[in-house]
């Protein structure tokens, strides 16, 4: 019987029929999705912090409004994604609990600091750019609620990416000090962005099954190559450079070759040793703990109102 269900499930996947929350699914599929979607939601929420860091220091009113709206969009993405994960039978509070205890991860990129205004540009261009590369295929993910959430997320992300590039473009046409700021931001964000695609294919433990189940459509290395190819061209428009002496067009492959990734750094940051891991998680925990009395008050008030209404009705 179990095998039969599994066959029906895989058959749907193969025929590109979306899996919906009430459909039968293998437990491992459910767990993989919970892990991936909640990790994605946490990344949106933790990702608000490095950019939120510059809202009060944005250089003019237009940039300030755009940045605030962008960070607010990320909260919105977090909201859709938590809701998508909740359809799999986990509550938002449980997911927060996993984030705060360190059991659930979020994208390591947000453990790097934002040191100058140019970082708002570099994050938009590179980090959001890498995110889009990962996320566009997820709009066709086999799990319906995730795919639908991603359609909305991707629309907004591509807007953010253009805004980020435009920040860098403005800086690149500005003073020497502004160009230095822009180049420094690219130098710091480039490699962490390249790492955002995750471990190399032969070292990515969850990838194979995710491909079979069409949660994932392209391998980490395929997406990474695509990202490098695009950025290597776009950086020319800025008149700036990517910090990789080995970056070179390879006629034969039809792709850019690029230098070795520092995987030791990658794993160190994943394991909690990045420059801002403690601060980022600390800020999330603080917001949650400081907000406990607010949530309790809201619940208590809602409860009182319900009781009053039922008394009135009786």
């Amino acid at each position: 019987m179990e095998k039969n269900l599994e066959e029906i499930f895989q058959d749907k996947i193969d025929r590109e029929i979306r899996i919906e929350p009430k459909d039968w699914m293998p437990e491992k599929y459910r767990q993989t999705l919970i892990r991936q979607i909640s990790q994605h939601a946490h990344s949106e929420i933790v990702g608000m912090l490095p950019e939120g860091n510059w809202i009060t220091r944005a250089p003019n009113l237009r940039r300030k409004s755009i940045l605030l709206a962008k960070v607010q969009d990320e909260a919105g993405h977090g909201l859709y994604l938590y809701s998508a994960a909740e359809t799999l039978g986990i509550s938002r509070d449980e997911m927060y609990e996993q984030l705060h205890s360190g059991k659930a991860k979020y994208s390591s990129i947000f453990n790097y600091p934002t040191l100058s205004w140019a970082d708002m540009g570099a994050i938009g261009w590179l980090v959001d750019g890498a995110a889009i590369m990962n996320q566009v295929p997820l709009c066709r993910s086999s799990f319906g609620p995730y795919a639908r959430a991603m359609v909305r997320v991707c629309k907004e992300e591509s807007f953010h990416q253009r805004q980020g590039f435009e920040i860098l473009l403005t800086l690149s046409k500005g003073s020497e000090a502004q160009r230095r700021m822009a180049q420094d931001a690219i130098d710091r964000w480039w490699w962490p962005s390249v790492m955002m695609f995750g471990p190399k294919d032969d070292e990515s433990p969850n990838s194979l099954l995710s491909m079979k189940w069409k949660i994932k459509r392209f391998s980490n290395d395929e997406l990474r190559q695509k990202f490098v190819d695009i950025c290597a061209e776009q950086v020319k428009i800025l008149g700036l450079t990517l910090p990789d002496p080995d970056l070179k067009w390879n006629e034969e492959r039809g792709h850019y070759d690029f230098g070795a990734i520092n995987w030791d750094e990658f794993w160190q940051v994943v394991q909690g040793n990045g420059p801002c891991n403690k601060e980022r998680l600390g800020a999330r925990k603080k917001a949650w703990e400081d907000g406990a009395w607010v949530r309790e008050a809201a619940n208590a008030y809602a409860e009182k109102r319900k009781n009053r209404q039922s008394v009135n009705a009786a």
């Binding site: 929420i45 608000m48 607010q72 909260a75 909201l79 938002r92 800020a283 917001a287 400081d290 907000g291």
Partner: peptide, 9 residues
Amino acid sequence: EWCGHGPVL
């Protein structure tokens, strides 16, 4: 200044 630090999403 609250953005990213609110008590409820």
